[in-house]
Design a protein around this nucleic acid. Structure first.
Lengths: 349, 349
DNA sequence: CTTTAGCACTCAGGAGAAAAGAGTGCTAAA
DNA sequence: TTTAGCACTCTTTTCTCCTGAGTGCTAAAG
């Protein structure tokens, strides 16, 4: 038996109906929705075929049909109509991204909330550099005898700085030497190498200078390690509670716990502008009954971010995909504009 | 009719039982729990009195009794036994706060999560300075002809920095003058004054210098404004779903929306180390059926933070209060230790 | 005057049974 | 191949009845 066009037609109607009602769809409804040209009996025959082919499922003998993951997959691949956002909507999306360019963290978390609010599903978002960042330049600004400010410029143009309380007194004259030491030995290398380099130097400089040096390097290592971590922010988990499939508090709790605690295992596709994972296509146990739509956006430099939306398998793929694409665009454009202005992130203490 | 000691005794038993079972408490249970010295009939008489006095309520004629807000209030004020945390528990709390002293934001959000996980209720946390921060010192580090690094030291010892793309070329020789201008004119004053000062200077310096100046000051204003904002982080909203009173998805959704969106209206008592707000004592509509326990902690300097826990009115006040106090202590101690080390927060871009 | 036993009464919640309704699958005719 | 017709299946809803926890009152005992 093969998948005729009419079968696909019917599958599409079933899915789109089910997406909105969350109720099994019956033959009569379908017939009506298809313009009444074909009788419900014919539809029934087709439905039986679609079940046999694995695109639909039947909760119990005398209920309507529900799409299977395989059905959704076909829908997403072939049947779904690319949805265009209205101008007004695009406008609203961009407006929600209109914020003062603050720290990356904050922008990201804002955007995550906006996405979630737009699609009415929980969302997650992250920004991650592809390469490890290195230090590019150090500066030390004396404050008083026991403290100075370390300023550190990273490979990706971010600047981090902090007040450093020194464990011992330092003469201002020593500073230039120290800075020089830092810039010649600790720029452009990885954290591991930094630690090695520090050990090497331990015998070449005075103990006093070494103490200062290691304090500064320790700070640098902290910063670089933190910069390398991809932080994942989730937003709008509460949206789940509106969905009939999560009215059961236990189910909702389970998924919300997963979203809150196991962020690392959220889908993070390596490539492509958009990826849709349906039900069992997800690796994580907790996502077996949910679908995930992920889009990527550019932050400039070698940075790239991901925004994802989590919902039930019957989520409104067309709408979510369109909006997510809108956001990805908006973010890319937003970071693009910043090119030549404060780069990606802000410094830290 | 007056509130005898025995009545208080009984009230206490009712409340403590109800806290754990969430079921109306009957006279027999109470009699048993009080050691069987008094018969259930006597208890019934007392219960009737307690209802009349407004400390208890009766869901329907033939159900047990449930504490009223007034009852909880009495319990919290007089009846509740100060709970002491076990050493192990204190240990665990402190351990959960054992983290690298990173940016304040991050510490706060971590601590919020920890609190929520400990008490099994949603928590919120914030850190707020009492006074407005000012800039204390500026530095500019040239990078290339079109960019330099602004470093800014705040009144509370934090350091913020960012790479600034300049709208026009600058000779390195101009830098010292600019820095001097900044340090003499823009330190120690409020944001409003900064803007005024900038206008004044517009006529006194060359247009080119003024452009640079305003770019830098704009950055400073951004930083100071952000520093003045109290950010409120909420954590563990999902805990609600475990409670019988929020098994109803709508109720849970309502409160979670409130926690996510209307953070400003969460109780922020101005003084006292700990405050308990029961049901209708809360101002916010959405909190009418919940209780809130808030504790404050010191961050050093003129900074003070608040941690709060939101739960049903039947929340385990004794336990929550004890743990919250433990966390407040832990945080205060933690920030105290940092005295003389990196002060409160980290810099921003 | 307080406490207690006894007892009728109330009412929410659960178990079943019955009815309703939606939808199917099959048969036979168009 | 499509369609009308119809019996059948199974969930969902409604209703009724029953159970049991818990009360409030009365009357006796302390």
């Amino acid at each position: 038996m093969e998948l005729t066009d009419r079968k696909k037609q019917i599958l599409k109607v079933v899915i789109e109906d089910y997406i909105h009602t969350a109720e099994p769809v019956g033959s009569k409804t379908i017939a009506a929705e298809m313009g009444g040209k074909i009788s419900s009996a014919t539809i029934r025959n087709e439905l039986a075929d679609l079940v046999e082919l694995g695109y639909l499922e039947q909760p119990h003998t005398s209920a309507g049909r529900v799409p299977s993951p395989k059905g959704y997959r076909l829908y997403v691949n072939e049947l779904m109509e690319q949805q265009r956002l209205s101008l007004a909507e695009t406008e609203r999306i961009n407006q929600s991204l209109q914020m003062k360019m603050e720290e990356l963290d904050r922008v990201i978390s804002q955007a995550g909330k906006a996405v979630s609010a737009f699609v009415n599903y929980p969302a997650y978002i992250t920004a991650a550099g592809r390469k490890k960042t290195v230090a590019r330049r150090f500066e030390l600004l004396p404050v008083d005898e026991h403290s100075c400010i370390v300023v550190m410029m990273l490979g990706d143009d971010r600047v981090k700085s902090q007040l450093l309380r020194l464990q011992l007194k330092v003469e201002p004259e020593q500073m230039p030497g120290l800075v020089n030491l830092l810039n010649t030995n600790f720029t452009g290398i990885s954290v591991d190498e930094m630690n090695l380099r520090l050990m090497d130097l331990s015998e070449q400089v005075t103990p006093q200078l070494f103490l200062l040096l290691s304090q500064t390097v320790a700070y640098a290592v902290d910063v670089l390690e933190e910069a390398g971590q991809r932080e994942i922010v989730t937003a709008g988990a509460k949206e789940l509670l509106k969905l009939p499939e999560f009215r059961d508090a236990d189910k909702a709790h389970q998924l919300m716990s997963f979203l809150a605690d196991s962020k690392e295992s959220l889908p993070m596709p390596e490539e492509g502008p958009m990826k849709i994972l349906i039900g069992p296509e997800n690796v994580s146990e907790a996502l077996q009954n949910t679908s995930v739509v992920v889009a990527s956006y550019d932050i400039g430099g070698d940075m790239r971010g991901l925004i994802g939306v989590v919902g039930p398998t019957r989520m409104d793929y067309a709408s979510v995909a369109a909006r997510l694409a809108g956001f990805a665009d908006g973010l890319t454009r937003m970071f693009g504009k910043q090119e030549g202005l404060p780069p990606k992130e802000d410094t830290k203490t």
